[in-house]
Simulated scan of single mutants.
Amino acid sequence: MPSHFTVIRDTTPASAIPKGAVVAMGNFDGVHLGHRAVIDAALRMGQAHGKAALAVTFEPHPRSFFSPNSPQFRLTTEANKLRLLAGAGLAGAVVMTFDKTRAGTSAQDFIHHDLIERLGISGIAVGYDFHFGKGRSGSASLLAAEAPRLGIEVDVQAHVDIDERPVSSTAIRMALAEGQIDDAAAMLGGPWFVTGQVVHGEKRGRNLGFPTANIRLDENCELKHGIYAVRVGRGRGKDFQRIDGVASFGRRPTFDNGAPLLEVFLFDFKDDLYGAELDVAFISFIREELKFDSVDALVARMNEDSARARADLAAAPGAFPRLGSIG
């Protein structure tokens, strides 16, 4: 894995862009197995020619630009997408701002100005169904047809299937919305995770003997409400800690039925986490969110949930996203 992951933006001087690089191009929401096939193709191409391999991706997600009033459940924030791309072994990522100008750029202009003139690429890998340029007129077949004239290598990756079902970001979102954590992890190539800052809650968990680290997820998150076995990452580099736990995501129907909140109870852990940023990886789905008739019944079930989570986590000792550092 490269020791330094470089992020190139629209404002990055041309002199700072490694010329002759090969690129993997896509939106890469989730960086799932289909995306990784494209990334691996770029890595092989770069290794064969002694060139750096970069990702080319777009922020905000084009769907958010074209449908700003339609909520979008993103699998990864921009920062976490970059951490996953770094963990995949790429030397860096080119993050192109997706705005009115870029949306109106023709596919040919994008190829010539952005890919050839600005980035100076020597090769590109894309998925079979990736489209770009005004009206989505750019395609893998267009790149392949232009390749000889442009003097670049083009690698088009077919879809990746699991149990005869194509892997896609949409399929993963649907799996998470249904609590099918194992299916989502299989398509992602590792557990789905979120990152957030620990905030103050009502401190009910502490009074019940289950103090929780509370994190507010994006309002468009469609993860199924329920109880999960989780693995938490805290810190970076040599200060990194990995801690097992059990989490509830939902509205707390026994108490207030309020706004959705992720509440994480960490096993055998005592430190104060207020204000800390945590990565929370979802390892298994234990049960749906329930309303209990009494606090005693809730506590009894929480003890059962914790025992089940410990067992599920013990059966998956290495399960955690492969994340790289962004420099």
Rank of each mutant, 00 (worst) to 15 (best):
Q180L: 11
H131C: 11
A315L: 11
D40E: 10
M187S: 08
I172N: 01
Y128W: 14
L323R: 01
K134W: 14
I286W: 00
G324L: 02
G92H: 01
K51E: 13
G327F: 14
Y228M: 09
M96N: 04
Y274H: 13
V160N: 02
R102L: 15
D239S: 15
R9E: 11
K19S: 13
V126M: 13
D40F: 04
D161M: 10
R242L: 08
T6S: 12
R118M: 13
L54Y: 15
D40M: 03
H131E: 10
I116Y: 03
Y274N: 10
F66D: 13
I243C: 05
V126H: 06
A316S: 15
V95R: 03
A52T: 14
V31W: 00
R102H: 05
S64F: 03
D29E: 13
S122W: 04
H61L: 03
E164H: 13
P321C: 07
P191S: 04
G30D: 00
N27R: 12
G205Q: 06
G34N: 00
L90E: 12
A21E: 00
Q157M: 11
G233H: 03
R301P: 03
V154S: 01
G127A: 09
Q241A: 14
D29P: 00
W192A: 08
A16W: 11
I181D: 06
A307P: 08
R231K: 15
N27D: 06
S168A: 09
E222M: 08
V7R: 06
F98R: 01
V22F: 02
D109R: 13
A145V: 04
G201E: 08
P253A: 06
D244K: 08
F320W: 12
A259P: 06
R63D: 04
M174P: 12
H159W: 14
G26Y: 01
I172C: 10
S64I: 08
V199M: 15
I172S: 09
R308I: 09
A52H: 08
S141K: 09
D218L: 00
I152G: 07
R173N: 10
F249L: 03
P13G: 15
F249P: 00
I111Q: 01
R252L: 06
R231I: 09
R136C: 12
D218P: 00
D29Q: 05
A175I: 12
E117K: 11
R252K: 10
P317K: 09
A177N: 13
I162T: 00
H131M: 01
E117Q: 12
D29W: 01
F28P: 00
A185K: 01
L208P: 11
I172K: 01
G245W: 03
G133V: 10
A14D: 04
Q197C: 07
A125E: 03
R216A: 07
A158M: 12
Q157V: 15
L298T: 08
N220C: 09
K291Q: 15
S325M: 06
S122N: 09
K270N: 05
G209S: 06
L150D: 08
I227R: 01
L150V: 11
L75D: 00
R44W: 03
G133Y: 09
A315P: 08
Q47G: 14
P68G: 05
I116C: 09
T101L: 07
G46T: 02
G324T: 14
E59G: 02
A229N: 14
